[in-house]
Design a protein around this nucleic acid. Structure first.
Lengths: 218, 218
DNA sequence: ATGCTACAAATAGTATACGAATTAGAAGAA
DNA sequence: TTCTTCTAATTCGTATACTATTTGTAGCAT
């Protein structure tokens, strides 16, 4: 999904570069992506640029309009919350499948990740730590396609969430919940862990919704 | 996902045509897709053909290999079963979200669909009926992105399942389960309906797995 | 001054062309 | 005969070039 980039070397760096710029917010939602300009900037022709943009469209990052090229896609508040519902479905299923496959080294990795939470400073760092822990939870599920979809969804939410997180209240609540989920996994309690994870994501969703409401009314 | 085809008119018909040929089995898994040949056949240049192929790659229907072009992607048995797990997750979530939004006209549509089951003859017809009923179940969920993903998964499984279904034993079991699910929806029993749906898809998965095993050992 | 038309600039989309890589086949050696 | 190696023919990937659509601007009329 995200990975099997067609290996045609020329468009791959363009794709990566544009994707990073969108995810980091360097290119703002709604901003048009000029093919000639990008091509010139990278010293190549438009063709690989178009291919990179098409791939970004397939990933949901940009939007094409007939004869008007590509623009960075803006996620509406509703779409963001809808993606959260999809996260609940996919991530709970992944965890359910993963727990029976977990071995000690998996738990070790996750504990190590949780320890590092104390030292996070920037929002970006926290966000990537968070993603790492969640991915570590799901990784043993053995379903590569499911893992791909989860990564896709997380990334699609990225730019929008990054903005909201700047006004995030506390990091303690998610941290505690992560520990609880990990404990349930270690005791092999599948339904318990899944219920905790579901509640974890649902709470995030509600907080996000609240922040969105607040921002929209301001 | 599937729909927001970039509206550049030239590659759209190519995409549709190739997609149909793959879904219908006219182009077999593993078969290479020659860009020049397709371009000549449609009287256009390679560029829109490549764009169509890249879109098909993003949808998971074809696979690109460096300097060797695109070939129709073959789903392994394991991948097929993995997609079934994803179906369970996504479709159960969609149904859960849909039931509170269902109104009488939704139920009417679903009953009408189930009545038509008696008259199906070909495997293709049954398959499309089946998909229609499932989609009708999820449609009221109000989450367009989720519906898109469900359609995507169903289509990706299409070609592989079509083959297996030819040796399908009975159509009665799924039909009865569909009635049971619909009843639960009508009485507003969310968890009951979702449990029935989960069992319904899980059973399909097990039957598919059994058929795959049988075929592989033969 | 404001709104409309006509023209010019910019930008997207696609055809053509070409270099690079792969594949196929033929010729020669073991 | 069978395996290697070299050459020829495909086929891919991308640069260049051209057309068409869109956007911006100036001039005109109201």
């Amino acid at each position: 999904m995200t990975k099997p980039a067609h290996l045609t070397t020329t468009s791959q760096p363009i794709y990566d570069s544009l994707r990073d710029e969108i995810l980091s917010g360097a290119i703002r939602p709604g901003e048009p992506l000029r093919q000639d300009e990008i091509a010139k900037r990278h010293g190549i022709s438009k063709i690989p640029v178009r291919e990179a943009l098409l791939k970004l469209e397939a990933d949901g990052f940009v939007l094409f309009r007939k004869n008007r090229g590509a623009m960075v896609r803006e996620l509406s508040a509703a779409e963001l919350l809808h993606l959260m519902d999809i996260r609940v479905a996919l991530e709970c299923k992944a965890l359910e499948l993963a727990i029976p496959n977990m071995i000690q080294s998996d738990f070790d990795v996750m504990h190590a990740l949780l320890k590092q939470y104390a030292e996070v400073e920037t929002v970006e760092h926290w966000s990537s730590m968070n993603q790492s822990f969640h991915n570590a939870l799901y990784e043993p599920c053995g379903n590569a396609q499911l893992l791909d979809m989860i990564r896709d969804i997380q990334q699609r939410m990225g730019p929008a969430l990054r903005l909201l997180m700047t006004e995030a209240s506390g990091l303690d609540r998610p941290n505690e919940e992560h520990h609880a989920i990990l404990s349930a996994c270690e005791s092999g309690d599948v339904t318990g862990a899944v219920d905790l994870l579901r509640a974890h994501i649902e709470t995030s969703k509600k907080e996000t919704a609240a922040r969105l409401r607040r921002r929209d009314t301001v």
